[in-house]
């Protein structure tokens, strides 16, 4: 029952994704065509709040609700990993009109096609796991 808060946080996230239209295929098309400020405003503002928030948490050694310190793990630098991985992800994001969160939001909203997208995304993750040692990281 202690975990129910994550279900509620996820529900809030799903409602935000839907109501902001960040989960809409149309908005993703508009974003990649630079034809409206909407999506840039959403991501930009989240980051504009997030940067000082994380900075403040680190500076004050912020604790989580259980009293444990909140840790931010630095990501090891690599060019191929983030560039190639990012490009493949971006191709898929534009083609399906949804990143992983919004795929699930769209299934909840009743778009059966996104069930196919989700299963394919699991298969993509599976193949990455199998090929991992052969890919440049």
């Amino acid at each position: 029952m202690k975990q129910i808060k994550f279900l509620l946080a996820g529900t809030l996230f799903g409602i935000i994704m839907f109501k902001s239209e960040a989960a809409s295929w149309y908005r993703i098309q508009e974003m990649f065509r630079f034809q409206d400020f909407h999506m840039y405003g959403i991501i930009g503002l989240a980051v504009a709040i997030g940067v000082p928030m994380v900075w403040f948490m680190k500076k004050n050694n912020a604790k989580d609700s259980s009293g444990a310190p909140i840790v931010f793990r630095p990501k090891a630098w690599s060019i191929p990993r983030y560039l190639f991985g990012g490009i493949i992800f971006g191709l898929g994001w534009a083609l399906s009109g949804a990143c992983p969160g919004p795929i699930v939001v769209n299934i909840g909203a009743g778009f059966a096609g996104y069930i196919v997208v989700l299963v394919a995304a699991m298969f993509g993750t599976f193949l990455y796991g199998v090929l991992r040692d052969k890919l440049p990281h």
């Binding site: 990012g86 191709l91 992983p100 996104y114 997208v117 995304a121 993750t125 193949l127």
Partner: peptide, 15 residues
């Protein structure tokens, strides 16, 4: 749908 989903899943984990 399959191609889009596949690239999202593969790319997200690779990146």
């Amino acid at each position: 749908l399959v191609t889009g989903g596949f690239m999202v899943g593969f790319g997200a984990r690779y990146a």
